[in-house]
Simulated assay, not measured.
Amino acid sequence: MFIRSERLMLRPIFPEDWRELFAGLSDESVVRMLASAPWPYTTEDAHAFCDKPRGADEMLFAITLPGDDGAPLIGTIGLAPAGPGPAYELGYWIASNRQRQGYGSEAVGAVLRTARALGIHEARAGHFLDNPASGKVLQKWGFLPEDRLEPTASAGRGGERVPARRYRLSLAKATDLY
Rank of each mutant, 00 (worst) to 15 (best):
T175S: 15
G156M: 08
L90I: 04
A133C: 11
E122N: 09
G85V: 13
V31T: 08
F49W: 03
A115N: 01
R166Q: 13
R148W: 14
Y103Q: 11
I13V: 12
A71C: 07
L177C: 08
D57F: 13
D130C: 11
P132R: 05
G159S: 10
P40L: 04
R124C: 13
V31Y: 03
R32W: 07
A123M: 03
G91C: 06
D68G: 06
L21G: 02
E122G: 09
G67F: 12
L129P: 09
A174I: 06
D130Y: 11
G104T: 02
G126P: 04
Y103K: 08
A153P: 15
G102W: 00
Y41R: 02
M1I: 04
R161D: 02
P84A: 15
R124D: 11
M33V: 01
S96F: 00
E106H: 01
F14A: 06
K140E: 05
P86F: 08
A174K: 10
K52L: 14
L8W: 13
R116I: 08
P81M: 04
V31A: 04
H121R: 15
Y92F: 13
V137N: 03
W39C: 01
S5R: 03
S29Y: 10
L90T: 04
E6C: 03
R4F: 06
F143E: 07
L112A: 00
Y88F: 09
S36L: 06
V137K: 05
W93I: 12
R148Q: 13
F128V: 09
L90D: 00
D130L: 10
V108C: 01
F2M: 01
E89M: 07
D176E: 12
L129R: 10
S170D: 08
S154A: 14
I120A: 01
L138M: 14
F22P: 00
A174C: 08
F49A: 04
S26H: 11
R100K: 15
R7A: 02
A110E: 09
L8I: 12
L118Y: 05
D27M: 05
H127K: 03
L169Y: 06
A56Y: 12
P84N: 14
S5P: 03
A46R: 05
D130A: 10
E20K: 09
W39E: 04
N131Q: 12
A172V: 04
G104P: 02
V137H: 05
G104H: 03
S36H: 04
L177V: 08
R168G: 01
G109Q: 04
L171F: 00
S26C: 13
R11T: 09
L169V: 02
E16H: 13
I3F: 07
L60V: 15
Q99W: 09
R165Y: 04
F22V: 06
P84G: 14
G75L: 01
L169A: 08
G70T: 05
R4V: 13
S26R: 11
S36C: 07
A153Y: 13
A56W: 12
V31N: 03
L129C: 12
G135C: 07
Y103G: 10
L34A: 10
S96P: 00
R7C: 01
P12I: 05
E150H: 15
R157V: 15
M33N: 10
F2G: 01
P53V: 11
I94L: 06
A110P: 09
A56L: 14
